[in-house]
Simulated scan of single mutants.
Amino acid sequence: MKNLQEATERICELKGSLVALDTLVPALIDALPAPVRARLQGSFDTHAEVARTLMLPADISDLVLSSFERDVARIATSLRRVATAAQSGPVEALLLTTAAITTFARYRSLTRASGFFFRRDARLFLVSNRHVFADAASGHQPEHLEVVVHTDVQDLSRATVLGLPLFRDGLPLWREASDQAGPVDVAVLEIAPGQLPANAVLQAFEASDLQAGDEDIAIGDALTIVGFPMGFHDTVHHLAVARSASLASAYGIRFQRQGCFLTDARTHRGSSGAPVLRRRRQHDAGSGMPWQLIGVHSTRMDMHPRDEAQDESLGLNLAWYADVLNTLTADR
């Protein structure tokens, strides 16, 4: 009985020590300069993956592994929330989620498009349309793509070009999805920690950004599409532009039985892959960005045939529901 009592007391002491460490870590993070915080986030993800690799083949209980994953996710979330304000610097964090995409066949530039970053636990993905990565119907077959990533939170004119291959050993590196209606025009390309520069400055949407919470979404609601129409953007600071939009079809209903909905907005080529966003009516300043990611812009809609002399373009666009990202970024 005495040994049991001593063990219980020791466990309580350890719990108290862990609580103290949990209090100390956020304080240390908060005291770090902004560039160091950004590097710490990437370094933590890398070291967590190394630890995960070492533990999986070891003789360790499932309870230890699940506790490790839970605490890694908790710490990573804390790091990202602290980094949101630090990394955004003089600009709204939303603009650091988007990236201009240029596709290439060898050294020849093919197309320009929009994309954005999405994080699932410790893994980072570039999201865009499936037809940006490859489109057999139009003969679009790039071999790699490039995205621009900021490298200085205080001087947004400083950036680097990140090259990402689309194939390895002849097999595509991106992930795509389909449903009962056919292919979904959304794809993700994973970015390994080693592919990003140590001083990369970016923001990423997360699974929580897909949720509406207690708010209703109704037809006619105001939306925002952030991207690079016709490649246009702030070329000095490497920032996307935002176009106003509205919800043009019943949200939650699969338009024409496909996993998409309509927006009413003026869009152009180059906007493919842009995030479609709704500003939350209620938002806690400490809980990340005040935006819900509801879709991925794909293409303009029009009537064919249309008398161009008498009828204007519909001005409608197709966007795919963003919850497909839960499927595309799941562990495999």
Rank of each mutant, 00 (worst) to 15 (best):
L325W: 11
S114E: 01
E206W: 01
S43N: 08
D307A: 14
L14S: 13
L328R: 04
H237I: 00
G286Q: 07
G288P: 04
G16I: 08
A207I: 06
P57G: 03
A322H: 13
E143H: 11
V148E: 06
F261C: 09
T111V: 10
R266G: 10
Q211S: 12
A181H: 10
R279F: 04
V82G: 11
G227C: 12
S249Q: 03
Q258S: 10
I60V: 14
R37F: 03
A38F: 09
V161W: 02
R300P: 06
S246R: 13
R39M: 11
A20Y: 05
V25I: 11
E13S: 09
A85H: 14
Q5I: 03
H304D: 05
D169L: 02
S43Y: 08
T97A: 03
L328D: 06
A99I: 04
M301H: 07
R120I: 02
M301F: 14
I219K: 09
D307N: 08
S313I: 01
L325F: 06
V296C: 15
A99Q: 06
Q180M: 11
A122I: 15
A177K: 10
Q282Y: 14
S138V: 05
K2R: 14
A322N: 10
Y107Q: 01
A51R: 13
T329D: 07
L54G: 00
A181K: 08
V82P: 01
T263I: 14
L189G: 11
E69A: 12
A177I: 15
A198H: 09
D311N: 07
L277G: 10
Q292K: 12
A200D: 02
R39F: 05
A86F: 09
H144A: 12
T111F: 11
T329F: 15
G213K: 06
H237G: 02
I225L: 10
Q87D: 03
G89R: 00
D30C: 11
